[in-house]
Each structure stands twice: as C-alpha cells, then as structure tokens.
Design a protein around this nucleic acid. Structure first.
Lengths: 207, 207
DNA sequence: TAGATTGTTAATCGATTAACAATC
DNA sequence: TAGATTGTTAATCGATTAACAATC
C-alpha cells in the first residue's frame, strides 16, 4: 500500500461494499471473493480490489476476503465506529423522511437532534430524535459535540443555516437545498440535489 | 461542435446551469457570462463553456449568454419540454416527501401517479398526484404512457417492482432502494442511495 | 481600436481496466 | 502440484484545465 490520494469515486463505493458485506454476513456467508462482491453490486472485481488496496491488504490470495474481518476494516475506514451524532435542521417532509429512514441506524449513524423554526408544526413521527427550536442551535450543537449537520430547509435560508451550524462547530454538512453553499476550506459539504436525478433521466430518455 | 460523446459529468451539471439561469431570469438578469454562471455554482468558467459546447454555440463572444435563450436551449437538451409524467411506487415517508418536493414542478417534471400496496395507509398530503393500488400498475403506466418510474419501496421488493415497471413499459428508473437493480441495457437506472452521502461525510471527518 | 468573453485545442490530471506475478 | 484469487503495475480511457485565437 502506497500513500497515494484515494480517488473520490473509491470513497463513494466503500459504503456499497460495506452494506453488501452486512447483507452477506446476515446470510451466513463467511468468505467472499472480489468477483462475488463486485457481481452483487455491478462493479468489476478489479475495481473492488483496487479500491480496497488503497487502505491495506485485507484478502488472502487464492481464497478471498473474510466477511467479518473486511467489515470491521471498512467500519474503521469509514469512521462508522465513531458513532457520530447528527443534527438535522428543517423538519419538513424531507427532513421527517430522513429521520425515519431506516438505513442509517444499521450504519452506526443516527439523527439524534432535530431543529425547526416551528416546533409545533413538527409531527410526532420523528422516532427517537429530540426536537428543538432553531434558537437552541448553538446549545444543541456544542453541548452534544455534534460534527455533522443536515440542511433540509428552503433554499432562501440554507446559507444562513449553514453559517450558523459552522459557527457552532459543525465540520461536515449534508445539503439538500439546491444552492451552492459558500463555506471555508476546512468544512466538508456534500450536496444531495434531488432534482438532478430526475432531470438526468429526462435527458437520457430524450437523447 | 463535433460529435464526441458527452461526459456523464457534464450531464450532471446541466441541471445546475438551468436552475441558476431560472433564478437569474426571475431577478431580471438578461445576459450572463460563463464566469458569472460558474461563480454562482462553484464551477470554473472554462468548464461551463466546455459543457455547453457539446451541444452548440449559445453565446456571443465578448458579450456572454442571453439568459432566456440559453434556458430554452437547456430545456430542449434536458428534455424538460416533454412534460414527462412520472409514476412513484411506494408512498412511505420518502415517497411522500418526493411528491411534495417543490423543486420538480418548476422543472416541468411532475409525479402524476402514485402506487402503494396499501392505499388506505397513504395520508392525504399527496398534492395533486392520483393514488392507486399496486394491482393497477400496468394499467396506470400503459394508459398514461408513463416512461419514468420512481422506486421508493423496501429493498426486498425493489427488484420485483422494477421488473413490473419495465414490463409495463417504463424506460427510466429513479431507484431509492439501496440495492443494485438488474435491468436490460435499454433501461436507464439512476441510483439515489441516501446512505452514501452521510457515510462519506463520516469518512472525511475521520481522515 | 481596446477590452471582454466565447469556443476550441492541447496539455494535464485522474480513474478504470487488463494483465500477471505472487501466493494461498 | 493445479486451481483460484489477491495485490499491483502499466496501459488505457475519460474529464478537467490552461491557453489563446476568434470575434463581439
């Protein structure tokens, strides 16, 4: 393993590997080859091996990868063993869907706190997350040492919410507002622009 | 304009251009340079020009791009003038959030029909979309000539739902289930795997 | 003409894939 | 040893960026 920078595309695939391993593990599979792993995800086996090689040598030649072992390694690599707390700002339709989305808990991630301007409007289907008014943003973030924030508010206020989150100590933002957030270099922003998916399908159907 | 295949990454950026132009247009801006457009989205001006150049020459040297003109061209390129009907399968939290997501209508796309196994469970906040039981999948798709389907059902049934949609005539699928759908080559699948976003933030915070 | 900005070429950078020695 | 599969190198492929002539 040389210390070359990992391609961004590799990072996107690691979660897929991890989740597929979870699935195989739950089915009692103990050893898996890069071919089997790749086939399950529509990814070439060469790419699976190459991706993993950025982080170490996890397999045995002639044999494959031990499922539980590779899972543990990926947990560490992806930082899932940190048990991050996550704060969600904006409890509209999308925000509520995210809180109730089952996929995160399995991954050691959970939306622990929810903020909204109108705490009354929030329906009670927010699972185990605690709900607070926007005013308490700073308190919630600092007292719980939260580093990850989700922005699910209207575009017009997204930049302001991001600024407040960063000011309170947030280091990574998952942004669902369809605007370009301006942040300093030490803050990681991940845009999840839902319109793009649907428009790109329209594009491919038309061309 | 030569006929080279357009990079997939370019297709992802076209919707961003289009939406930013809509915003500028609503603010009364009539002409915009690739620099201004790029700055608003965090994209280099060279890339903006290169992206557009795959489809034609839309600007005037020394001047820039006429906003309304470029918008019309992008509408055509993205196929937004087709006024696609879209069928959503799965009216859970996420499905409901998608139906109520305001961003699509502005783009000439709209979720016109919703399917779910349990029509009773569906709350009434599904806007103008019509709700049908799963049994009517084929009828809804064929009678309305729908080509785009959204899969927002649990992973266990996602492949089966996709198969049924394709069998009824759907050509493009927006898949929110975190599994790899197996489809023939003439079907376009766009995966929207929500876990990846959050996990990748965890990764970047840990490294 | 002087200044601005496009459209495009060529150079650079980054990601994927093929091939194969190493090794279980 | 024979068969299988990893880890890695080198070749290929694809995307971004710098530079600049064309032109308003």
């Amino acid at each position: 393993m040389k210390n070359i920078t990992t391609p961004a595309t590799t990072v996107e695939r690691l979660p897929l590997y991890y989740r597929y391993l979870q699935k195989m593990d739950s089915q009692g599979v103990e050893v898996i080859s890069s071919k089997e792993l790749g086939d399950g995800l529509g990814i070439p086996s060469t790419q699976v091996r190459k991706d993993l090689s950025y982080y170490g040598e996890f397999g045995r030649r002639g044999v494959g990868y031990e499922v539980s072992d590779l899972m543990k390694n990926l947990e560490r690599i992806l930082g899932l063993d940190n048990n991050w707390k996550v704060v969600l700002v904006g409890a509209g339709n999308l925000g509520q869907a995210l809180v109730n989305y089952g996929g995160f808990k399995k991954l050691g991630l959970n939306i622990s706190h929810v903020l909204d301007i109108d705490t009354n409007k929030i329906k009670s289907n927010l699972g185990s997350a605690e709900v607070y008014p926007m005013k308490q943003l700073r308190t919630v973030v600092t007292e719980n040492d939260i580093k990850i924030g989700i922005v699910a508010v209207p575009s017009e206020v997204a930049q302001q919410v991001a600024d407040e989150l960063i000011d309170a100590g947030i280091k990574a933002i998952w942004n669902f507002a369809p605007i370009h957030l301006r942040v300093s270099d030490d803050i990681k922003v991940r845009d999840e622009d839902l319109s793009i998916g649907l428009i790109s399908l329209s594009y491919y159907l038309s061309n």
